[in-house]
Amino acid sequence: MAKILPIKVTSRAQLGRAGAKSTRSAGNIPGILYGKKTQPTPIQINSKELTAVLHGASSENVLLDLAYTHEGNTTSRLALLQDVQHHVLKDYIVHVDLHEIAQDEVLHTEVPIQEVGESIGVKSNGGLLEKTLRSLRVECLPRDLPEVITVDISALDLDQSIHVSDLKLPAGVTALNSADATVLAVLAPAKEEEAADEGDVKQPEVIKEKKVDPAAADAKGGKAAAKPAGKK
């Protein structure tokens, strides 16, 4: 089962782009807390604390035990880390979305799929392990949320695959992906076709509107053809 990680969260008064920027420069990460029974509330989390919490977690969709402080009062809340936005180049966290949930409320989230062992098809027959689905969308209670879903692929030979229906899910966890969706497949080694000669590089075809020939339209008869002729 997934661990519930404790973290301190405080309400945020500085809003908008400038507010978020000043929050970041003060060493905090701006975020938002929302839920079925919670009004969307701007929050901030200490960036070092969040990085430490996420370090060692199997994915970014983790359960958090929030110590939420607002105007000096601290309350305990359970939330799912719904979304984490990273800087495109520098990788630091820019913003987080926290989804408040109740212990008895069913949640929907993604759990990473991790293969265990080495497939016969890859090891002995030179196949390629294709990972079509890297995370599974699941529905469960917070206490049943698994950290990862493991798949044993050691018996997987060439041209064989594992589907969502083949996954062994922990009790209380339901997969929301289609049951016949492929998770992993071992493909036969592909024969690469050599590229064609570079001699004549063709130019793309230009899409043009088709002109309606009035004579052809009259020959067909019908009301649709008669209408544009009447307009003229």
């Binding site: 570079e198 590089v201 793309p204 075809e205 230009v206």
Partner: peptide
């Protein structure tokens, strides 16, 4: 052969 669009507007 280098990549190229098939059809363009």
């Amino acid at each position: 052969m280098p990549l190229l669009p098939k059809r363009v507007k």
